[in-house]
Protein backbone atom coordinates (compact mmCIF):
# COMPACT_ATOMS: atom_id res chain seq x y z
CA UNK A 1 0.00 0.00 0.00
CA UNK A 2 1.26 3.48 -0.88
CA UNK A 3 2.03 6.28 1.58
CA UNK A 4 -0.89 8.19 0.09
CA UNK A 5 -3.25 5.34 0.94
CA UNK A 6 -2.21 5.39 4.60
CA UNK A 7 -2.49 9.20 4.76
CA UNK A 8 -6.03 8.96 3.39
CA UNK A 9 -6.97 6.19 5.81
CA UNK A 10 -5.56 7.95 8.89
CA UNK A 11 -7.10 11.27 7.79
CA UNK A 12 -10.46 9.55 7.33
CA UNK A 13 -10.35 7.92 10.77
CA UNK A 14 -9.47 11.21 12.50
CA UNK A 15 -12.12 13.11 10.52
CA UNK A 16 -14.77 10.58 11.53
CA UNK A 17 -13.55 10.81 15.13
CA UNK A 18 -14.15 14.58 14.99
CA UNK A 19 -17.62 14.18 13.44
CA UNK A 20 -18.73 11.58 16.01
CA UNK A 21 -16.59 12.68 18.97
CA UNK A 22 -18.39 15.89 19.87
CA UNK A 23 -21.61 13.98 20.43
CA UNK A 24 -19.86 11.15 22.30
CA UNK A 25 -18.26 13.60 24.72
CA UNK A 26 -21.42 15.64 25.22
CA UNK A 27 -23.57 12.54 25.85
CA UNK A 28 -21.34 11.63 28.81
CA UNK A 29 -22.99 14.44 30.74
CA UNK A 30 -26.48 13.97 32.17
CA UNK A 31 -27.54 17.56 31.69
CA UNK A 32 -26.20 20.32 29.50
CA UNK A 33 -25.22 23.51 31.30
CA UNK A 34 -27.10 26.59 29.98
CA UNK A 35 -23.83 28.19 28.91
CA UNK A 36 -22.85 25.08 26.93
CA UNK A 37 -26.33 25.15 25.42
CA UNK A 38 -25.85 28.82 24.47
CA UNK A 39 -22.43 28.00 23.02
CA UNK A 40 -23.80 25.17 20.90
CA UNK A 41 -26.64 27.36 19.63
CA UNK A 42 -24.00 29.85 18.50
CA UNK A 43 -22.02 27.24 16.54
CA UNK A 44 -23.65 27.51 13.09
CA UNK A 45 -23.55 31.33 12.84
CA UNK A 46 -20.04 31.52 14.34
CA UNK A 47 -18.40 28.82 12.20
CA UNK A 48 -20.15 29.61 8.91
CA UNK A 49 -19.33 33.31 9.29
CA UNK A 50 -15.61 32.50 9.34
CA UNK A 51 -16.03 30.80 5.95
CA UNK A 52 -17.52 34.00 4.47
CA UNK A 53 -15.81 36.97 6.13
CA UNK A 54 -12.21 36.52 4.82
CA UNK A 55 -13.53 35.87 1.30
CA UNK A 56 -15.64 39.04 1.56
CA UNK A 57 -12.70 41.14 2.75
CA UNK A 58 -10.46 39.83 -0.04
CA UNK A 59 -13.20 40.26 -2.65
CA UNK A 60 -13.39 43.05 -5.20
CA UNK A 61 -16.48 45.10 -6.16
CA UNK A 62 -18.07 42.13 -7.98
CA UNK A 63 -17.73 39.81 -4.99
CA UNK A 64 -18.94 42.42 -2.48
CA UNK A 65 -21.93 43.24 -4.69
CA UNK A 66 -22.80 39.54 -4.97
CA UNK A 67 -22.74 39.13 -1.17
CA UNK A 68 -24.83 42.27 -0.59
CA UNK A 69 -27.42 41.15 -3.16
CA UNK A 70 -27.46 37.63 -1.71
CA UNK A 71 -27.79 39.01 1.82
CA UNK A 72 -30.71 41.25 0.89
CA UNK A 73 -32.52 38.50 -1.03
CA UNK A 74 -32.02 36.18 1.95
CA UNK A 75 -34.04 38.62 4.13
CA UNK A 76 -37.16 37.92 2.10
CA UNK A 77 -36.69 34.65 0.18
CA UNK A 78 -35.32 31.12 0.60
CA UNK A 79 -31.85 29.70 0.25
CA UNK A 80 -32.17 28.70 -3.42
CA UNK A 81 -33.43 32.15 -4.52
CA UNK A 82 -30.65 33.80 -2.51
CA UNK A 83 -28.05 31.55 -4.11
CA UNK A 84 -29.28 32.19 -7.67
CA UNK A 85 -29.53 35.97 -7.11
CA UNK A 86 -26.04 36.16 -5.62
CA UNK A 87 -24.56 34.08 -8.44
CA UNK A 88 -26.34 36.16 -11.11
CA UNK A 89 -25.07 39.38 -9.49
CA UNK A 90 -21.53 38.00 -9.40
CA UNK A 91 -21.52 36.92 -13.05
CA UNK A 92 -23.09 40.22 -14.18
CA UNK A 93 -20.60 42.33 -12.21
CA UNK A 94 -17.59 40.35 -13.41
CA UNK A 95 -18.83 40.69 -16.97
CA UNK A 96 -19.36 44.45 -16.61
CA UNK A 97 -16.00 45.02 -14.90
CA UNK A 98 -13.97 42.79 -17.25
Amino acid sequence: MSTIFWIILAGAVLTYAARAGGHVVLSMFDRVHPRVEAALNAVPAAVLTTLVAPAAVDGGPAEITALVVAGLVALRFGLLEMFLAGTAALIAMRYLLA
Partner: peptide, 20 residues
Protein backbone atom coordinates in the same frame (compact mmCIF):
# COMPACT_ATOMS: atom_id res chain seq x y z
CA UNK B 1 -13.64 32.30 -13.10
CA UNK B 2 -15.77 34.39 -15.45
CA UNK B 3 -18.73 32.22 -14.43
CA UNK B 4 -18.02 32.94 -10.78
CA UNK B 5 -17.41 29.34 -9.74
CA UNK B 6 -14.63 30.29 -7.31
CA UNK B 7 -17.01 32.42 -5.24
CA UNK B 8 -20.12 30.21 -5.10
CA UNK B 9 -19.34 28.69 -1.70
CA UNK B 10 -19.01 32.02 0.17
CA UNK B 11 -22.39 33.07 -1.30
CA UNK B 12 -23.95 29.79 -0.21
CA UNK B 13 -22.45 30.00 3.28
CA UNK B 14 -23.68 33.59 3.64
CA UNK B 15 -27.19 32.32 2.88
CA UNK B 16 -26.82 29.75 5.65
CA UNK B 17 -25.58 32.39 8.10
CA UNK B 18 -28.60 34.58 7.25
CA UNK B 19 -30.88 31.61 7.88
CA UNK B 20 -29.96 31.63 11.57
Amino acid sequence: DALGVDFLLPIYFLGLVMGF
